[in-house]
Simulated assay, not measured.
Amino acid sequence: MSKIAFVFPGQGSQFVGMGKDLYENNQVAKNEFDKIFNNLNFDLKDAMFNGPEELLKKTKYTQPAIVAMSLVLEKLVREKGIVPDYVAGHSVGEYAAMGSSGFLPIDEAVKLTSFRGEVMNEIAEKVNGGMAAVLGMEASDIIEALKEVDGIVEAVNFNEPKQTVIAGEKLAIEKACEILKNKGAKRAMQLAVSGPFHSSLMKPAGEKLREEADKYNFKDAEIYLVANTTGDFINKVEEIKNEIYSQSFGPVKWVDTIKKLKENGVDRIYEIGPGKVLSGLIKKIDKEIKVISVNCIEDLNNL
């Protein structure tokens, strides 16, 4: 029997005006957004709807903005009678997946995300790190090549078979890009990000997140979530708390995640939230899976 999965995008998919059409044209969306905005101690609404772009790009705003929009959209998709068998999210998108699976209520999931944004920003400012995207090379070859680099540099985001992101110390990243190009990578380019996310340099963020997570009312999930760091199903409180800790300095195994969903009968995936990045990645991982992107009121009306 065919199964459905919901997946949620990560950082980079934000844009000024995100969620505004939903807020202004749908009462359910407006109520959910207001609940989220009232639960935060900063003005996320203004940042999302009016920007400017520089403000929305700050991790403190970006991460909760993406998760807030994703979860409000998710609620509206469910109202159409579409319910997932499984959920997953890419990087910060995993926090939207937490809300979707039932680990946390929507406003709590966004609040925890805003803490994540702040703490990751804080740690990123203390370490001189960055990230780079490597295209046209197998992940296993990248991992092997990184062993030749002095300093900390790790393969962290396994986005699709020929696209992997590396993260670590700035000098180590530069050297790695040089080595990878010489070994046949089509491109190895540094990304405009504020820190070495998902690398071991971010471990202090994991410690703070683990502490913070204990203040929230988690409950066992109703729907299995495929964890970023393992590519395995989780549904217990203890498992999601471990994932919150590990994911801040552990990998995003997106290729394994999609394979896991496929193995378990998923043939239709809804990408819910801003942008269409995941739709593109999924098509490169498995052409047979049908991907439906839901990122505005029009998409909802077309379901």
Results as ranks from 00 to 15, higher is better:
residue 178 E to C: 05
residue 198 H to R: 01
residue 71 L to S: 12
residue 46 D to A: 14
residue 192 A to E: 14
residue 234 I to F: 07
residue 111 K to E: 12
residue 93 G to R: 05
residue 234 I to T: 07
residue 81 G to N: 08
residue 60 K to M: 15
residue 82 I to Y: 06
residue 277 V to I: 12
residue 139 A to Y: 07
residue 112 L to A: 12
residue 253 K to C: 03
residue 69 M to F: 05
residue 284 K to E: 14
residue 182 N to G: 15
residue 72 V to K: 09
residue 15 F to P: 00
residue 22 L to T: 00
residue 197 F to Y: 12
residue 215 K to L: 05
residue 95 Y to R: 00
residue 43 D to W: 06
residue 48 M to H: 08
residue 196 P to K: 03
residue 156 V to I: 14
residue 187 R to Y: 09
residue 191 L to S: 01
residue 45 K to R: 15
residue 228 N to Q: 10
residue 211 E to K: 15
residue 116 R to T: 07
residue 37 F to M: 13
residue 119 V to D: 00
residue 137 M to P: 02
residue 131 M to V: 06
residue 45 K to H: 05
residue 11 Q to E: 09
residue 16 V to H: 11
residue 145 A to N: 08
residue 194 S to H: 01
residue 276 K to D: 11
residue 110 V to L: 10
residue 107 D to I: 00
residue 189 M to V: 15
residue 276 K to G: 02
residue 288 E to N: 14
residue 82 I to T: 05
residue 164 T to M: 01
residue 182 N to C: 01
residue 118 E to M: 14
residue 220 D to N: 14
residue 287 K to R: 12
residue 204 P to I: 11
residue 41 N to A: 00
residue 173 I to S: 12
residue 37 F to Q: 12
residue 234 I to A: 09
residue 160 E to W: 04
residue 282 I to H: 06
residue 183 K to R: 14
residue 90 H to A: 05
residue 73 L to R: 08
residue 75 K to M: 03
residue 94 E to K: 05
residue 280 G to R: 11
residue 185 A to D: 05
residue 239 E to N: 11
residue 78 R to N: 14
residue 215 K to V: 01
residue 30 K to C: 10
residue 65 A to W: 08
residue 299 D to S: 11
residue 27 Q to H: 04
residue 128 N to T: 01
residue 48 M to T: 08
residue 241 K to N: 11
residue 244 I to T: 04
residue 177 C to A: 12
residue 199 S to C: 09
residue 96 A to W: 03
residue 202 M to A: 10
residue 125 E to W: 00
residue 189 M to S: 09
residue 20 K to M: 10
residue 58 K to D: 14
residue 268 R to D: 00
residue 31 N to S: 15
residue 233 F to V: 09
residue 9 P to Q: 03
residue 135 L to V: 15
residue 298 E to V: 12
residue 158 F to I: 11
residue 132 A to E: 09
residue 298 E to K: 15
residue 300 L to K: 04
residue 209 L to P: 01
residue 154 E to K: 01
residue 59 T to F: 03
residue 97 A to R: 07
